[in-house]
Design a protein around this nucleic acid. Structure first.
Lengths: 226, 226
DNA sequence: GTCTATAAGCAGATAGAC
DNA sequence: GTCTATCTGCTTATAGAC
């Protein structure tokens, strides 16, 4: 816009953006490695390799930094899987992909990270909407895929993709947290869920007669669930 | 055993136990109302209505108090539902009971509480085993019921009750945390899970021919899940 | 066992030099 | 924009009176 030479202004601007970026990454790493209880301005600044006062210069408060980091992290993570998710065409495919994605996210610690933020958000009004927004990015993707793959199934008329997507997202967060205190238990839980998914996928493969029987039974007691 | 008059010794002993109890309850209430990030010795002592120094006298450290509170709370909560759970005989009954229990626990804030502890446990080695133990109390109960109700179902041979129980417990924790940032979303998620459960329950009610078809299809691709 | 007082350190946040 | 220095208040934890 105006001011000093274009060169110096731009250089400062670039450095400022770099600092913001470092702080966002530092916040995420601190959350993953030390948890929400240790995620102080000082700890984050140290992980980020920048001065502690810059947390407040750039974000105003620790909570606002955490909120921004949540959005930032979720966006990057979701974008990473978006294309692949778009190519999923069946429940069975979705399950295979889910396992793969879960491994990747677990390694990055991103699932437990959402758990940390969710826990922190309970008492903290500022974090709550940011965390909800971060989760919603995942939920939106999951829901879209569910609509697509459930459409080819007799289950379509008995399931609510919006609610199911939320259930899946929340469950994954719970499993991510559980993993931290009992890795073997979490593994068996994930395997059981996969089995359950395979069970649903099996309905896709039923012969027409059995399929109609399933549909009929479901319809007959459809009123109960809701 | 020995010492002063029996009367005074007992009186002190009783008061000491009362203090311990107050601190345990105070820790739970603080966790529910303010979250793990605000659960300091001072905050807990204030909620408990006792002196702050007593936290360290009775439990040594804040973390040990939290660990003890976790076991304490989980035991009380699980005991509360045990008899009723024992009387559950079918998947459909289990679903109805699950809804009821969930309402009760939500009101008490106990589900989100486990989430708080689980989040705190990630970075903290002392809390991890205590939280795992608290969760295990729930898992054991759930598993027992699952074994019982799944036995009467063609699903028995395709599901792993131990893993499933862990998945259910972890998912509930995730949903409890999610509820804090998006109550409406959590409600729809829970409804969707209930629908999913009703779907599984429907298999119980299939006519014999369809039932055999389902069993057959599941067996055919049974190797895939695990 | 319970209390007050206090030590020692870490938290969020700001002022002002550069 | 970034740094150092600092204020204020809260944290865990302990010493010692009662």
């Amino acid at each position: 816009m105006s001011g000093k030479t274009a060169g110096s202004v731009k250089a400062q601007d670039v450095r400022s953006q770099e600092t913001r970026e470092k702080l966002l990454e530092g916040a995420l790493r601190t959350l993953v490695e030390q948890g929400i209880t240790k995620a102080s301005a000082r700890a984050i600044a140290t992980t980020a390799g920048v001065n502690q006062a810059l947390v407040f210069y750039h974000f105003g408060s620790v909570d606002e930094l955490l909120a921004a980091a949540c959005r930032h992290g979720a966006e990057r993570r979701v974008a990473r899987h978006r294309e692949r998710l778009r190519s999923v065409g069946s429940l069975t495919e979705l399950l295979a992909f889910g396992r793969e994605m879960h491994e990747e996210e677990r390694e990055a610690g991103h699932v437990a990270l959402l758990g940390q933020l969710l826990a922190g958000a309970q008492a903290h009004p500022l974090l709550a909407p940011a965390t909800a927004a971060g989760l919603d990015l995942w939920i939106t993707e999951i829901e879209e895929v569910l609509v697509r793959v459930l459409a080819e199934t007799p289950l379509a008329e008995f399931t609510d993709p919006a609610g199911l997507a939320r259930a899946v997202a929340a469950s994954f967060v719970g499993l991510g947290l559980y993993e931290g205190v009992d890795p073997a238990g979490a593994e068996s839980a994930f395997a059981a869920l996969e089995q359950l998914g395979a069970l649903m996928a099996a309905v896709e493969e039923l012969n027409p007669v059995a399929r109609r029987a399933v549909t009929y039974t479901l319809r007959r007691q459809g009123g109960r669930g809701r």
